[in-house]
Simulated scan of single mutants.
Amino acid sequence: MGSLSIWHWAIVIVVVALLFGGRGKLSGLMGDAAKGIKAFREGLKGDDDVKSNDGVSSLPRTDAEKEELKR
């Protein structure tokens, strides 16, 4: 019971073949993850561009905010 049977080894070999076999599937997955992280960071940097110089957001205003500004 303590040793691995042939089925355990077969599963290990299949998992290793899926991860490292072919044209670098694991490196492709890691590259995709890196692109996602880079896009996320660029998106966070883009939030700083939304605010104008006086610190007021340049996002569209609600009707209540527009009425308040008219006063």
Rank of each mutant, 00 (worst) to 15 (best):
N53I: 15
H8C: 05
S58Y: 04
F20G: 03
S3W: 12
G46L: 09
V14L: 13
S5L: 01
D48G: 10
K66G: 00
V50H: 07
D47V: 13
V14M: 11
V16H: 04
I37N: 06
M1L: 11
P60F: 00
A64E: 14
I11Y: 06
K25H: 06
V12N: 03
E68W: 08
D54L: 07
I13A: 13
L4A: 14
A33G: 02
E42I: 03
L4D: 10
T62N: 01
L44E: 08
K51T: 15
R71T: 01
L44T: 03
S58Q: 15
V14F: 08
I11H: 08
E42V: 01
G31W: 02
G21E: 11
S27L: 13
K70W: 01
G21V: 00
V15Q: 02
M1E: 10
S3G: 10
R41W: 14
L19Y: 03
A33E: 10
V14T: 14
S57M: 11
G43M: 01
D54Y: 00
K38S: 07
I13N: 01
I6P: 02
E68H: 07
D47P: 00
E68G: 06
A39T: 12
A39D: 07
I13Y: 02
K70D: 08
S27I: 14
V56C: 05
L19N: 05
L69S: 13
S27M: 13
E67A: 15
V15E: 03
I11W: 04
K25R: 13
I37E: 05
G36K: 05
K70S: 11
I11V: 15
G21M: 04
V56S: 11
K66S: 09
L4F: 11
I37L: 12
G21L: 09
L29R: 07
